[in-house]
Design a protein around this nucleic acid. Structure first.
Lengths: 156, 156
DNA sequence: TATTGTTATACTCTATAACTATA
DNA sequence: TATAGTTATAGAGTATAACAATA
């Protein structure tokens, strides 16, 4: 299957073609399908925690550095402030974060994780890590390391 | 930047977080960003040919095996038949393909590449291959091979 | 009645523009 | 006047449902 769809959950990216007879597929195809498979594993691992990968990413950012406002968090995540509103609405409904007015500038919201939110981040991150370990378990240790090294080098 | 956006051209996939201080990023992050970078290179390489990666994928499928109908081609590409209609409208407007009624079953369309279409596929594929070569040129030959091998193993 | 291509429609995700409240 | 958060709206992309032609 040459996945072309952009938004389907199983196929949400552009693709360039592969020839199914050729045992050596284009790199873009390999990267895409590897990401797709791992993404499915991670999604399955996160589902019991009531999160998807993007929500976890938001939680991790909020759990990390002290962020003065929603907008700062949105900038860190590369999403629009209006999109951040929707994320926070969802996460607040789930009882994982709370919004409080900033002490000095009441236009701003300080977003904090609840105790449940912190527990969820911990558990969900562990689950995602485990999914990654499982995915990589098909490879020998040295090959695993080479894969990571090569990808890091490409992104340098 | 922890890219979370799903549809932005520079960031059209789900993500799980990375810690920017940690030199070892999660595999999902690495795969995603490698794909993103390569995708940009490929897009730039294809632009002079008036195509994006997905249109090239459609053309390659149409250029390959003899496909009896639009729907068969759509199935090969993992897209809906209604989406295929839109792709073919675009490609036909560009003069790269033609639709003809099937000789034996007049409900079906046989889709064929024009001479221009065939030339374009050849040139665009070469351009995409060159972009991939350029992207991989940062790696030594053995590391390149290890990357490819590891990804193939993961998708086995 | 079923199937192919097509069109109309609805849905999802996200950004832009407009509104409010603060500054 | 400018900025943070919010809401309303519009756009892109894709699927589902409905329709016409053919089998």
């Amino acid at each position: 299957m040459l996945i072309v769809s952009r938004t389907d959950d199983q196929a949400n990216c552009k693709v360039i073609p592969m020839s199914s007879t050729d045992p050596t597929r284009p790199l873009y195809y390999l990267l895409k399908h590897a990401q797709l498979r791992l993404g499915e594993l991670i999604a399955a691992a996160l589902a019991p925690h009531g999160l998807d990968g993007r929500e976890l990413a938001v939680l991790v950012v909020l759990d990390g550095d002290e962020l003065a406002s929603q907008q700062q968090a949105a900038a860190r995540l590369g999403i629009d402030r209006t999109t951040m509103v929707a994320f926070l609405d969802t996460l607040e409904d789930k009882g994982l974060v709370v919004r409080r007015p900033h002490a000095e500038d009441r236009r701003k919201n300080v977003v904090e994780l609840t105790a449940t939110g912190r527990d969820t981040v911990r558990a969900a991150t562990a689950a995602a890590d485990e999914a990654e370990r499982q995915f990589l378990s098909q490879l020998t240790n040295p090959v695993r390391q080479q894969l990571s090294d090569a990808l890091h080098a490409l992104l340098r």
